[in-house]
Write a protein that binds this DNA or RNA. Sequence first.
DNA 1: GTCTATAGATAGATAGAC
DNA 2: GTCTATCTATCTATAGAC
Lengths: 213, 213
Amino acid sequence: MARTVGSDGEKTAKAIQEKSLELFARHGYAAVSMRQIADAVGIQASGLYQYYKTKQQMLLDVMQRHMDELLAAWENSNCPADPTDALEHFTRFHISFHLTRPDAVFVSYMELRSLEEAEFDAIEALRKRYERILRDILRQGAAEKSFQIADPHVSAMAILAMITGVNTWYRSGGRLSQSKIRELYVAMVRGAVGLLPTQTPNSNDVQREVVHV
Amino acid sequence: MARTVGSDGEKTAKAIQEKSLELFARHGYAAVSMRQIADAVGIQASGLYQYYKTKQQMLLDVMQRHMDELLAAWENSNCPADPTDALEHFTRFHISFHLTRPDAVFVSYMELRSLEEAEFDAIEALRKRYERILRDILRQGAAEKSFQIADPHVSAMAILAMITGVNTWYRSGGRLSQSKIRELYVAMVRGAVGLLPTQTPNSNDVQREVVHV
DNA sequence: GTCTATAGATAGATAGAC
DNA sequence: GTCTATCTATCTATAGAC
């Protein structure tokens, strides 16, 4: 209790968040020890318990923050009303957001099984909320006959898997810019819902038109 | 050494393969102990070392067998020569194969980071061989101008992510049959490479045509 | 081929000093 | 807020009996 006036180790708190995320992403939750995290932060393992009651709570915090930020960023992204525009907007948003947080994405999708029941349910609810955003766009586009899809739920899962998959192969400094990658995926997503290429569909120039936007 | 004549515990060997796969898939490699595996098999933990020198070798074996079976199954699948037909064939093959082995798929994609360097390289080489199959189909279709794709490599990764993603949501006994799911994905894959729906593209019946094949 | 026993390391978490 | 010290449990892997 006898401690210097100040803000309760905010720097340490932040460092724990960063290092735990990094280590969980690289080695997996179960393979990382509290001592490893403490070493990375520069404190002793026992010091971590000032910030988290258990290791499990550290994982939950990482995933919770990621999902909260994802949903908040979506709310601030000004999605257009037209389903076709919305679908393109969602695709670009999703890829941009995910490419800037590869570690958090990786942990949030891979470590669901490391969560205990209550923690899993909390994260799963947030994930479903996000999935529903895309599903609603697809449903509306299907209702308006803009999209040629037989099953909006399946299409939503397929598209999400496709656009999240960028993270498995993208390396910054690679052959393609992020904006080029986004447009390649926009073209594929459009095709997957039965939209024609953005220009007339009977010329080889279509390809170039689709790519550069 | 004094042992009954026979085949060196083939039943136990098989049981270890099955149970280790099952447990790795459910809890993750790092979270599963040798004791847990031994319990599931019905022997003592020390007995496992008759079959595997280390836990790491057990993981490698699981993944090695999966990749070998995948590549062998592909060789036996009689892929047609035409790129469009080949792409549809690949899509159906991939989904069928992966839906019958959800645990092996899960472990093989999720536990790559749990492999030590040499083991990782071995599995990665097999994975690349499989990816190349799809990439070659896409390249050929692009060269023939059957497909409207700007980047066969990106398209291959996108399509693989999409069709592997079925495993994350499919539950047997669900709303859709496996064959219906395959055809939904074939339609999306076709769209993603710029192919028009199988029938005329300006009628709402197209949707039905695409779905049932 | 499977067992018991155990070595040797490391895990998550707590108590209490400063 | 971070430390040292430590508890208790569990881990992978080996030795050697049967």
